[in-house]
Structure formats: structure tokens, C-alpha cells
Design a protein around this nucleic acid. Structure first.
Length: 583
RNA sequence: GCGCCCGUAGCUCAGUUGGAUAGAGCAUCCGCCUUCUAAGCGGACGGUCAGAGGUUCGAAUCCUCUCGGGCGCGCCA
């Protein structure tokens, strides 16, 4: 159930009945309540003003005509015209109560499945396997994962694509290094234990030794010609590196598995074919020995068509080529309706070029939605890209370890009654949740400033606040000795705090819809923060298990709580943040 | 030079197809634990929405210009 859609439907009918032109929209939105009791009701329809312009009449008169035709007595207790022509709607507590019951009876929290589920291919995380995952991979990984989870919850078919960097000239160097270390009797797992150091050693080796550099170049050629021994080394490298990534995903509570890995190398055999096709279509032409696609729809500095090189002078391919092969595979073999890319904003131009070429070459038809959901860079307190004290790249593994350590200290302070294992488990969920939430709660398109203190202060708009709200609810159910789903007594909403909570809970579906439409997880964050905040207020104002609370009120509030717990829990789950029963 | 993004409270950030008095958190200050977990709640303080024009019933939001910051622009990915 979606209140906004429902009201829009009712208002659309009323506007038609009032004889307004069909292009007039009701424009229903939740009223700005800012937590407190709203003076304007819970929803408002603002379409009368725009309709008045079209119908050339006074907005207030139009509003009155709409209200006269409006049929919402079943769900609204009051409809007022205010100001220049706002129509304010106050919902009936009894209706809200019934809808809360429905939410409690429905596994999907009353989210309606899409009329026609889509196949959505989501490209996210995509680390370079040559190196260890670092903070630069964090945003793509967790934002992409939140969207993936939300799409699946809605009922869409999601195909995760971890487009890992597992190909390219640097692998010649790495294989050469691996081969030497294996000759020294080292196992691949051990040699690659510290991928970062391994890479640096290989690089140094490459720079220092002409002999080694030649060997590395030789391996590149062998790799490309499918030499069996070289491929075997490459596969070993890949496997160890993937295991590193997988470990990070597990710690991060990210839903990617090795089944979702479909890296650059997967497209090798298609690259030459693809370039030939683009040449045959006359989209690609030779320029200075390279194969280039010129795009007049994206003019360069001089106003002439901008070039995209798809094959180098030396015959090698570039990442534009691979991305084109990937987009074709996703559209045609995976039958995607939407293809989402969670990639750094700095690659906006590149993505636009790839999308444009893919359309022109009809690799992807116009029904398929191609979406680059860009995000900004993670900055340090100084406003510059987040680095270690010595200026190096921050490893994701180190970042997570530090978050968990810091969390454990705080958990130990706040709650002294936990066993060692409980405390460790909570610290893990709190620390990782804090990092993820700090990132997810910011509009993804902007750069964001990473700050340990604000993130782990665990006060205000942070993951621990939300997790704490959840544990408070669980604690009440524990004390009450019920689970929530066994209650089926009537719900009565009387207090402002209760009504506000009920409305907010029922708005979950509106938020979910917007989140997947625009790929904005921060909307979900703000929603559950509002929900948790309203719950905290309710918690203070509306006792449940205390003395003097009659059975009916108690059971009614417990059921409301049950809906909140499920909604809050699901919201956090969609963000990839764990909950717990106590903390 | 051309293109994209950004500029909102001391700091970090919201602000939904243009809507009513621009909202949170942190910080500061004042209250609230013999009562469901105080990682909490209530209150106070805090704004020329970078600046100037324009569009209209109405602009932080749309258009133009200026200032300031970030990023990208042919053989790396």
C-alpha cells in the first residue's frame, strides 16, 4: 500500500469529475511535519494552483471544486483548503490502524510487487585484482549493494556483475613475480598474503631489472595467446586475490559472491569481433593507426566530434572496448531492462561515450535503460582525498579493523554486562554499520568527508542510533514475553506520537520506490532515521509495560511496535546493516 | 579553452516532478534516570541558501551572468 499513490488516484478522479483538463496533476506530497504534529495534516495536494493556471480560474475555487468531487471519507478525517490553494489531508487514525494490521500480516511489509518485474543488471564494486581493496572501492560496493538488495526486495530480478580488473599489461608483471616466488618454493597463497606488498615488489622488480621487465612483457603476450602455463599462474593469482575481496565482502556484509564475478577477461574473445563490427558499421575509422569512434553528439573543445579509441596502434584494446562488450552482453545475453553502473563520478564522460556508442551501434536498444549512478570521492578531514598519515592509500581491511576496534571500546563502556563473544559480535555490527551508514546517508553524487569522530560518536544520525532503537524495541518484546506476530487485538491510535509513527511506517513503500528509481540509498537512511526518531519520542511519551497501562492500550502499542521493528529492521537490512537484540 | 559536478547554521549534511515560517545531527548552553536500555528525550542558541539579475501567485530548487572550489577532456583503467 502506498498512501501517496492512493491519494493521487483519488484526486485524479476528483479532478476529472470537476471537469479539469486531463493534463492537470494532483501533485500529492507528504506534508512537511518535521517530526512534530503537522498543522497541515499528513498529506497535501498542490495541484490546484497549477490547474488554476491552465483552467484560467482562481486557485482557491479550483481547490474547492476538487474537494467537492473528492471521495476519501474512508481514509481521511479532514480535508482543508489553505493558503493560495493547498489541499491538506488529515488521515483517519482508524484507517491508519487497519493498515498497520495489514503490514503486520504481510511478509513484504505491504510493499506491492511490480506489475512487470524487471531484469536489472547492476555493475558495482569491481575492484582491480592486481591490488588490495582500498577505500576507493567502498562507495561503489556498499551503495551498489544497498540498491541491489532494495531492488530484490521490490521483486525485481537482479543480476550482480562484479566487473573485476583481472586483465591488462600489469598482469604480466605480476605473473612474472609470482612465477619467481613459486620457484623459491613459496605457495601462491602465502606469496600473495599481502597483495599490496606483492604488487610493490613486482613493480620494483620491473623497474630495476631489465631482464625481469622483458619476462613480464613476454608473459603479457603469452597470456593473450592462451599459453597454458601462464594461464595457470594467472588463475592462481586471480583466485587468491578474489579470496581477499570475498573476505572484505563478508566483513562488510555485502551480498556479492564469487558467482557474481564477471571480470574484464570474460570479454577477451569478443573484443576483436566488436571492433570489426564497429568498423563494418563505419562507426569506427582508422586514425593515426588506431581505430577510433568519433562522436559528433559529444563535441570536443573545438566543436569537432570527440574521439573514443577502441583499438590502439599496437592492436591492443582499451577499457572502452571492454565496457562496450560488457554492455552488449548485459543487454543481449542477460536480457537486461535496466543496466546500472556504480562508478566514480570522474568516469562520467567515459560512461556517456560508452552509452552513446552502444546505442548508435544498436548493441543496446532504446527500451533498455542505461544508468551511470556516479558518486563523489571520500575525503579526509582536510578536504583532500582520504589517505593514511603517511599519504598512502587506506586499505579497506585496515579501515574495517579500526572501526571494529573503536566500536568494541565503546560497547565495553556502554554495557558492562556483555560476555566477550557478545561484545565482539556487537562491535563488529556496530563498527561496520557505522562506516556504511556514514557513507550511505550522504547524497551519493557529492564528495563526502570521512570522519571517525562523528561516525563513531554513535550519537545522532548514525547507524548505532538506529541499531539502538531496534534493540530497545526488542527489549520491550522480551520483557512483555510476546513476539509481536501473535497479537491480533485491535489497534487504537490516539496519541500524536502514535499517529505520526503509523503514518511514517506506512510511507515505507513510497521511499523504497524512490530509492530504486533514482538509486539513492540516502533517502532510505533519512527515512529510517525519521522513523527511529519518532519511535524514541513515542518511547518517552507512551509507556507500554509500565504500571497503569491497560491491556488494550498495551496490546495496541505492542502491535504498532511490531510494525516499526519490522520496518526499521528491513530498512537496515536493505542498507546491509545488521541489527541485534541487545547492545 | 571546452564539458560535468558543487557552494545551505561554527562543523557535517538534508531539503522529493518549483509550495506554506529553509530542517537535522555535531559543537555550545539549560533541563530530564527509585519507572520498558540516558548509545536516549525535551528546550535554547545558531541562516543575506556564494553574489547579481530574470521567469511567476510562489524560487535554496528553473534560466542568464559573476565569484569561488572539485573533477574530466586520443592510444592507463
Amino acid at each position: 500500500m502506498n498512501i501517496r499513490d492512493l491519494l493521487n488516484q483519488r484526486f485524479t478522479k476528483a479532478m476529472q469529475a470537476a471537469g479539469l483538463p486531463s493534463e492537470c496533476q494532483p501533485h500529492v506530497t507528504p506534508s512537511k511535519a518535521s517530526g512534530k504534529k503537522s498543522q497541515f495534516g499528513e498529506y497535501q495536494a498542490n495541484g490546484a494552483m497549477a490547474a488554476a493556471k491552465i483552467a484560467k480560474a482562481k486557485p482557491v475555487d479550483i481547490a474547492q471544486r476538487i474537494v467537492n468531487q473528492l471521495n476519501i471519507d474512508d481514509l481521511a478525517s479532514q480535508v482543508d483548503i489553505a493558503g493560495p490553494g493547498f489541499i491538506n489531508i488529515t488521515l483517519k487514525p482508524e484507517w491508519l490502524a487497519r493498515e498497520i494490521v495489514t503490514v503486520n500480516q504481510n511478509k513484504n511489509l505491504s510493499i506491492q510487487p511490480p506489475l512487470s518485474p524487471q531484469t536489472v543488471v547492476v555493475d558495482y564494486s569491481s575492484p582491480n585484482l592486481a591490488k588490495e581493496m582500498h577505500v576507493g572501492h567502498l562507495r561503489s560496493t556498499i551503495i551498489g549493494d544497498a540498491i541491489v538488495r532494495t531492488l530484490e526486495f521490490q521483486g525485481h530480478k537482479v543480476i550482480r556483475q562484479n566487473h573485476v580488473g583481472d586483465w591488462g599489461t600489469q598482469f604480466g608483471m605480476l605473473i612474472a613475480e609470482l612465477e619467481e616466488q613459486l620457484q623459491d618454493g613459496e605457495s601462491a597463497t602465502l606469496a600473495l598474503k599481502d597483495l599490496e606488498r606483492f604488487y610493490q615488489r613486482a613493480k620494483k622488480h620491473f623497474d630495476d631489472s631489465e631482464n625481469f621487465a622483458n619476462k613480464a612483457r613476454d608473459y603479457v603476450v603469452k597470456l593473450q595467446s592462451n599459453d597454458e602455463k601462464t594461464l595457470s599462474l594467472w588463475k592462481q593469482f586471480k583466485q587468491v586475490s578474489l579470496a581477499h575481496s570475498q573476505e572484505i565482502y563478508t566483513t562488510l556484509n555485502v551480498s556479492l559472491t564469487e558467482q557474481d564475478v564477471y571480470g574484464e577477461s570474460a570479454y577477451n574473445d569478443d573484443l576483436g569481433i566488436l571492433v570489426d563490427e564497429l568498423c563494418a558499421q563505419k562507426l569506427a575509422i582508422e586514425d593515426q593507426g588506431a581505430q577510433v569512434v568519433f562522436l559528433e553528439e559529444m563535441p570536443d573543445k573545438d566543436g569537432s566530434p570527440s574521439p573514443v579509441i577502441i583499438r590502439k596502434q599496437d592492436g591492443g584494446f582499451l577499457y572502452a572496448t571492454t565496457d562496450l562488450a560488457a554492455i552488449r552482453y548485459r543487454a543481449n545475453s542477460l536480457n537486461a531492462d535496466r543496466i546500472l553502473y556504480f562508478i566514480d563520478a570522474r568516469q562520467s564522460l567515459h560512461m556517456q561515450q560508452v552509452f552513446t556508442i552502444a546505442r548508435k551501434a544498436t548493441f543496446v536498444n532504446n527500451q533498455v535503460s542505461l544508468e551511470h549512478h556516479a558518486f563523489g570521492t571520500m575525503m579526509g578531514n582536510d578536504g583532500k582525498p582520504f589517505k593514511t598519515r603517511s599519504g598512502g592509500t587506506v586499505k579497506l581491511a585496515d579501515l574495517l579493523e579500526e572501526a571494529i576496534e573503536r566500536a568494541e571500546k565503546i560497547v565495553a563502556e556502554k554495557n558492562t554486562e556483555l560476555s566477550d563473544s557478545e561484545r565482539k559480535e556487537i562491535a563488529q555490527k556496530v563498527g561496520v554499520g557505522a562506516i556504511k551508514y556514514a557513507d550511505l546517508s550522504k547524497t551519493r553524487t557529492n564528495d563526502y568527508i570521512f570522519n571517525w569522530e562523528s561516525m563513531l560518536s554513535f550519537e545522532g544520525n548514525t547507524a548505532p542510533y538506529l541499531q539502538y532503537a531496534y534493540t530497545r524495541i526488542q527489549s520491550i518484546f522480551r520483557k512483555a514475553g510476546v513476539t509481536g506476530n501473535e497479537l491480533n487485538t485491535p489497534i487504537t491510535l490516539t496519541e500524536d506520537a502514535e499517529i505520526a509513527l503509523a503514518v511514517k511506517t506506512l510511507q515505507f513503500s513510497e521511499v523504497i520506490e524512490q530509492v530504486t528509481k533514482e538509486a539513492y540509498p540516502h533517502l532510505l537512511c533519512h527515512y529510517i532515521y525519521d522513523l527511529a526518531g519518532l519511535f524514541m519520542r513515542f518511547y518517552e511519551q507512551c509507556p507500554i509495560l509500565k504500571e497503569g497501562i491497560d491491556e488494550t492500550t498495551k496490546n495496541s502499542r505492542l502491535q504498532l511496535l511490531y510494525a516499526i521493528a519490522n520496518t526499521l529492521g528491513k530498512g537496515l537490512d536493505l542498507l546491509g546493516i545488521d541489527t541485534m537484540d541487545r547492545m
